[in-house]
Amino acid sequence: MSHPTEPALHPDQEPVRYLHAHFEDDRRFPWGKLWGYVGSLALTFAAFGAVAQHLWPPTALMTLILGLAVAQAGLQLGVFMHLRESRGPSWQIAGLALALFIAVGLVGMSIWVMLFKSGVS
């Protein structure tokens, strides 16, 4: 929208919000990366400890350690891989989302379809 006293901008000249570059600003010491490292170590030892101690029954334990792995993957992407950084739109997020959708479908459906053992043999 334009102010009445200013001439209206041609649509081509209007700044496009989503095209603005965004880069993460680290402080003088890489605290973000250090906490990311500490966090990933904590998640790894939590998963390892839970399995070594047989904390829960197998199915619940598998769900727990898968959850910890997903949290750690998110941590790697967010803290270390600068996921949102781009000069324009972050196309990589759309690409990764699609890949994740296909990956979960591929693995999940493979496991699901193999549950019908009676139909195969």
Partner: peptide
């Protein structure tokens, strides 16, 4: 850099296939 992200996207699919294989 964006192009390299797209390579990683395809690599996700390679590893997803291998994980599906392992699960089965």
């Amino acid at each position: 850099i964006t192009g390299f992200w797209m390579f990683l996207v395809t690599d996700v699919l390679i590893f997803a296939s291998l994980f599906a294989l392992y699960a089965v």
